[in-house]
Computed example of a mutant assay.
Amino acid sequence: MSQPLKVGLVGWGAIGRVVGTALARQEVADAELACVVDNRPLGDAAPAEQVAFEDAIERCDLIVEAAGQGVVREWGERVLTGGADLLIASTGALTDDELAKRLLAAGPGRVYFTGGAVGGLDLLQAVRSFAPLDEVRLTTTKLPSTLEQPWMDEELLGRMRSATGPVEVMSGTARDVPARFPKSTNVAASVALAVGDLDAVRVRVVADPAAQLTRHVVEATGPHGAYRFEVAHRPDPGNPATSQVVPYAVLRSLAAIAGRSGQIL
């Protein structure tokens, strides 16, 4: 690129701070942090000017969402129709079929999503192009406190809080689960997007008081073979609902978009 990619970062939390700091230090070739959007006054905490969302769209080539599914729903189309590209970290928002269709149809900006805390998505995409998968299963295991939700009844909350071993919190499809755990199960949506079918991915969410590491196990089978991916990440100390690796997945995606040579795609 003749000019660096101007990046607007939405969210200055556990993910945004790492991504924004790396961009400000010019750790991503051909990309620079142009501005930060956040609903809190950041003062000198951010290494770039804090602006309104509308201003970010006007001045940036790429908007990076690191602030939750609500941002994608409220601003996704406006980013794309305004001419900027959009990189989504909160992939759970794309389990809304209507929203996903509108984003894919919008333009001239392009929409990307990052795999976040799970691997093997590139292989699942390749496999599905060869032949449909017969079965895809994801099991996510986290500390009980990171999985508590307002919709849970007292019986379930009590079982989670008093658990001495693993407790299944929810079982469903990748369409259902991310909507019920908007900050904790974006991995389910990422796997489903790679597979190309939200209803084909069966998801189990497990609370385990011994889960010092957040664990995701993906199992898939088809006429072409069988696949199993397992990852175990340290939770972010400031926001245990997300893994420490997620901002680095965002940075890798940024480097690919900016055109870094030698990138594994």
Rank of each mutant, 00 (worst) to 15 (best):
E135W: 06
P4I: 04
F229W: 14
P209Q: 07
G109M: 06
E65Y: 04
F113E: 00
V7E: 01
T221C: 06
L123D: 08
V7Y: 08
L147V: 01
D85I: 10
Q212R: 15
A100Y: 05
C35D: 04
V7K: 05
G43F: 04
A106C: 10
P247D: 00
L156W: 10
V187T: 13
R204C: 03
V28Y: 01
K6L: 13
A249Q: 12
F53Q: 02
V118A: 00
G116L: 12
Q125C: 08
T221W: 07
M160H: 07
E135D: 14
V36S: 06
E155L: 02
A31C: 13
S2E: 06
V201F: 02
M152A: 14
P108V: 07
D97S: 14
G172D: 01
T140S: 14
G109H: 00
H216S: 12
T146H: 03
A210P: 03
G13D: 09
P182K: 04
R175T: 05
A100F: 03
A24V: 07
D153L: 05
A52F: 12
K6M: 14
Y227C: 07
S145C: 11
A241Y: 14
T140C: 14
R175E: 07
A194G: 02
P166K: 09
A24L: 08
V19M: 06
F113S: 09
T81S: 12
R40K: 05
E32H: 08
D122L: 13
D176P: 15
A188E: 07
D134F: 06
G259A: 03
D176C: 11
V205N: 11
L265H: 11
E58Y: 01
R215D: 05
V191S: 01
E54I: 03
T141Y: 02
A100P: 02
L265D: 10
M1V: 08
Q263I: 13
D55L: 02
A100S: 07
M160I: 10
L62V: 05
G116A: 10
Y112L: 06
R204I: 09
V28D: 11
D199A: 15
T91E: 15
N239R: 13
V136D: 01
A255H: 01
R59Y: 12
A67T: 10
R25P: 09
A210W: 10
V36L: 07
V206G: 00
R137L: 12
Q3K: 14
S2P: 01
A29M: 13
A255S: 10
V79P: 01
R73V: 09
E77R: 07
L193C: 05
V195Y: 06
A163C: 01
R128E: 08
R175V: 03
R102G: 03
A56Y: 00
E74S: 05
C60E: 09
S129L: 13
D61G: 12
A220N: 05
M1I: 09
H224F: 15
S129K: 15
D208K: 11
P223Y: 15
E32I: 15
P108L: 02
L156Q: 07
V246P: 05
Q212D: 15
L42S: 09
K6F: 11
